[in-house]
Design a protein around this nucleic acid. Structure first.
Length: 431
DNA sequence: TCTGGGGTCCTAGGACCC
DNA sequence: TCTGGGGTCCTAGGACCC
């Protein structure tokens, strides 16, 4: 008995069978922001709709009608403006509180269909349907109809033995009306599965972005099918462990698990395009101050405190003809801080250290990191131990420095100086 | 002339996602 | 003229230690 057990242990991954009965469903809202706008303005039902990002800069959502007019995702508004006026496209500025509220209603309905749910994003949710013996297609049709009738939001469901396969299945459910919004990719015979992969580009695979696709194309991997048939070693060389995971997921070996636990936020970022180029220190400082205030508000809403802070500014990356620069600085803190009377001056100190005159800065922001819920030293130790491998927060080192310096309050996160910036200790310690 | 190597920690930046 | 914002994870390479 123990011999057998030992033998099994020794080769756990050799010829490992596909996980029997494992099944994920991905429920994805159709054109979510545009659909939300429709719920509150039903007369827009058949109209082409576009939703714009902050400052009305980019197009971030389109209804099907807008898509078929050739309006692309992420394109600057001004480039499409004329077309949209001529086609009487309805243009909306984004309304995030509305979308957030609609999202939680949708997620609540979905949660009724499995004990294991992962809310993946504002408009997407995974369900674990492993071991369900009912007809999953019918079951998910019911879910789809219920979400629609209870919230007004249309969704599509993709199913597969891994997340990557479920994601692909969802795209198929969206593209081909004959599946009525629900598609299970595991039911396909292998030849049809491969044919299907051939109809997708490699960049359509979840986890393969533009940069990776370019690398792959250089060695002749263009379609999802090419990727599927490629050597796993080549994929790992080009794309690293992520590429390998995606590759295995495509074959039905689950590498990405459902993550149910509500995400414990690890950082809070507040950043913004300034709207116009800023060169003057005081102007940038003013912009960052208000961003810090925003970040701190979010921190306090969640009753968290930060043990590191980063400040960054950079020039316009879209302008090729000007010299580009990206400046940032991070410090770690001995005590978790959630007080804006401390964080705002700290932001200014950091900005002062990285600021260089003569550049036109386009965007900037602050990041509060290594968040913790508990403000006591002892618990910080524990939290730090737990997150160290994830965030590599140099906590032990900081504490050593702190004791050498008589428990001062601020310490630079790096070894006094990182890259080209030297840390001015007197500045930092005087906050 | 020839100047170790394994391990850890850290930062900056890349890539991806929505 | 006008190009979002908020996240996560991974990796290359430097610094350091023994």
């Amino acid at each position: 008995m123990s011999l057998l057990f030992g033998a099994l242990l020794r080769q756990p991954f050799i010829n490992m069978p596909k996980f029997k009965g494992q099944k994920f469903a991905l429920i994805d809202c159709n054109n979510f922001y545009a659909s939300c706008e429709r719920v509150f303005e039903p007369k827009l039902e058949r109209e082409p709709i576009v939703v714009l990002s902050n400052n009305d800069g980019c197009i971030i959502a389109r209804s099907n009608e807008a898509k078929s007019l050739g309006i692309k995702m992420g394109v600057p508004y001004y480039q499409m403006k004329d077309l949209m006026i001529s086609k009487s496209v309805v243009v909306k500025s984004s309304n995030y509180p509305l979308y957030g509220d609609m999202s939680s209603r949708v997620m609540k309905v979905i949660s009724q269909y499995s004990p294991i749910q992962e809310v993946y994003s504002i408009d997407e949710s995974f369900l674990d349907l492993s071991g369900f013996t009912i007809n999953l297609n019918t079951y998910m049709q019911t879910l789809k109809n219920q979400v629609k009738s209870w919230t007004g939001i249309p969704v599509c469901v993709g199913m597969g033995s891994t997340k990557v396969r479920a994601k692909l299945a969802n795209r198929i459910a969206k593209i081909y009306p004959r599946f009525n919004g629900v598609f299970d990719i595991d039911n396909l015979p292998i030849e049809r599965f491969e044919k299907l992969l051939d109809s997708f580009e490699v960049v359509d695979i979840w986890g393969v972005g533009n940069k990776s696709a370019q690398k792959l194309q250089q060695i002749g991997i263009n379609s999802a099918y090419d990727f599927y048939k490629a050597d796993i070693g080549i994929i790992e060389t080009l794309l690293g462990v992520n590429g390998k995971r995606i590759y295995r997921e495509l074959y039905g070996y689950s590498c990405l698990a459902i993550e149910e636990i509500g995400p414990i936020r690890k950082q809070i970022v507040s950043s913004r395009s300034f709207g116009l180029d800023l060169s003057d220190f005081d102007e940038i400082n003013q912009a960052l101050t208000s961003l810090t205030r925003k970040a701190v508000n979010r921190l306090n809403q969640k009753s968290l405190a930060a043990t590191s802070m980063s400040v960054f500014i950079y020039t316009n990356p879209f302008k090729r003809d000007i010299s580009r620069i990206s400046l940032s600085k991070t410090v770690g803190m001995i005590t978790p801080i959630s007080d804006e009377r401390v964080l705002i001056p700290l932001c200014s100190k950091l900005l002062k250290q990285i600021y260089e005159p003569g550049y036109k800065f386009y965007k900037g922001g602050v990041m509060l990191g290594s968040l913790t819920t508990d403000k006591s030293q002892q618990d910080l130790f524990m939290a730090s131990n737990k997150t160290q491998s994830l965030h590599k927060h140099p906590y032990g080192k900081l504490l050593r420095y702190a004791s050498e310096l008589g428990n001062e309050r601020w310490l630079p996160r790096s070894d006094f100086q990182s890259s080209r910036f030297t840390t001015d200790w007197s500045e930092i310690l005087s906050v």
